[in-house]
Structures are given as C-alpha cells and as structure tokens.
Design a protein around this nucleic acid. Structure first.
Lengths: 148, 148
DNA sequence: CTGTAATAGTTGAAAATGTAACTAACAAGC
DNA sequence: GCTTGTTAGTTACATTTTCAACTATTACAG
C-alpha cells in the first residue's frame, strides 16, 4: 500500500504554487502594459542586468530562443526596448530598454517588490530565506531519474 | 535605490523551480505513455481519488474545463479511462480508470514517489515538511494586490 | 406548466507555444 | 582561400491553450 499523495508531490505542488502566486501579478503587467509572461521576463532581465543579448537572456532565464525572439519583437514594436547590432560580431544584437521601457520596469518592479512581501507575510524572515534557498536549489538542479 | 532581485521574486522563483522539477518526470509519462501534462493530471486524480466527474477534477486541480474535456477524450481514446453517464442527472458523466489506466497510474505513481524523494534528498524530514507546508499555503492562497 | 437561469460538458476560432528548419555571420582546419 | 562546423537570431508549421459560443439537461420562479 502506497501513501503517495498527488497534492504533496513536489513538481505538482510547485506548479500549483507557481500558478496561484503568478496570477495577481500577471494581471498587473497584462492590464497596465499589455504584456505576456515572456515579455515581462525579458523586460525585467534588461531592467535588472542592463543591456544584454538575446542569448544571454535565454541562458539566464532558461527561456527558449524563439520565445525571446518573439518577446523582443513585441517589446520593440511597443518601443519598450531598442536593438543595436554588434559591430565586431554582426550576428549579435544588444538589447536595451528605452525610457518607456525603464519606466514600465520601475513601475512593475515596485509592484513586484510589494507583492513578494505580501506573499511572504505569514512567514518569519528566517523562514522566507529558507524557503527561497530551497526553491533556488530546486530551480538550479537538473534532476534526472535513472532506472525508475 | 531598490534591492529587488528578479531571481528571488517568489512567483518567478516558483516557476523556475516548478519547471526544473517537472522536466524529468514529464519525460517519463511522455515517453512511456505518450501523455501530456493535463492527461497525466487527470489520470492521477482518478487514480488517487477514485471515480470523479470532470467538474470535480476541474475544481480540485484548478484546471479549466476545456483542458479536462480534451484530456479525458484522449485518455478515453487510448482506453485509460471509461465514462458512464449519471442516470439521475444526465448532464454528468462519471470517469473511472480502466485496468490499463490503473496500471499506468500505478507505474507512474511509483516513479513519482521515488522522484519526490530524490528531489528532497538534500533536506531533512523537518525541512521537507516545512517546505511543502509553505508551498501548500501558497498554492491555496488567492492573493490579490490592492492599490499597488 | 412555462419561461429564465444555471450547470455539465463540447466545440471552433484565435492566440501562444514547441519543434525544426532556415539565414546570416563567424571560426577553425587544412 | 575553401570546406565544415558553430552560433545568433528568425520563420514556418504543427500542437496546445485560451476564450467564447454552443448543446443538452436540470433548477427554479411565477
């Protein structure tokens, strides 16, 4: 007899928590700026790390390059970012936020900051740190499952 | 000056952890049974909770009814589940696993059980419990964000 | 009864995603 | 130089998801 519980299965539980906690924030960037998830992510990468290439964002965000490509196209069309071709390696393009892009980022970052605090409101500082540390470990890990 | 860190923003972090931890398991149910995420979820609900209606699964899994409808159609086509119409309320249909469906569930449940243990290998029992408790809280919560 | 609203589930069209193939530019071996 | 391979990024097509409309059935008010 197994005591397995679907709702305590970590990948399932993480998905449920991720979706629930993304909802309210998603509402904000969608309503205020008409952005999708990948667009928001690209915006935040550029906002936080400064000018980057699409590949660099792809690697850091673990986002497929086609998603980046399409998100960048939309952000560019809406004048939230600008591209400049690298003169040394003309395959590469450097992405950076426009003034409008930075304004959107600053606004959304402030929301994110408060929202994060709200999500963690029930936990002590130590508990929050522990939770995030464990999640970071899980996010970075590349678990395989040999011979199952 | 803000000290906001995208990679420590809970919704983002949860998404990264959820995706990373889902990957290896997804590979198994996809390779062995050709299932998609929603099909696996429906299978597990029926396996764990016994016969249910589509609405009941929808409510418990927080999965939209169209996803359920299509997942059920595929699972039925592959003979993993069978439907029976409720005689008292003929709108309702009760879903239950076939023998093949239960076999698939038993197999995948065993994988899930071992995989879960592997994901938590670095943590003590108390830490694991605390982590899952916090995730459960986040998964159940319906956070809004007033006046941000 | 009868009309109106609600619920269970399905379907069609539009949007988004995933996968693979593609172009263009650079790199390295010979 | 020329071939072969690699990397940056885009595009095309198939699959999935989303959203709204739809059918069928039940509930409920008058």
């Amino acid at each position: 007899m197994s005591n397995f519980d679907l709702e305590q299965f970590l990948p399932y539980l993480l998905n449920q928590a991720a979706e629930a906690s993304s909802l309210a924030f998603q509402q904000v960037y969608k309503d205020r700026y008409g952005m999708l998830r990948n667009e928001w992510r690209v915006l935040f990468h550029l906002g936080q790390f400064g000018p980057m290439t699409a590949s660099a964002i792809s690697a850091r965000a673990r986002l497929h390059k086609t998603k980046i490509s399409r998100a960048v196209a939309k952000l560019e069309a809406r004048r939230y970012l600008a591209r400049t071709r690298d003169e040394d390696d003309r395959r590469v393009e450097h992405l950076q936020l426009t003034a409008a892009g930075r304004a959107a980022f600053d606004d959304l970052r402030a929301v994110a900051e408060r929202y994060d605090a709200q999500l963690l409101a029930g936990l002590s500082a130590a508990q929050s740190r522990a939770l995030k540390a464990h999640l970071t470990t899980l996010a970075v890990a590349k678990p395989g499952l040999a011979r199952m």
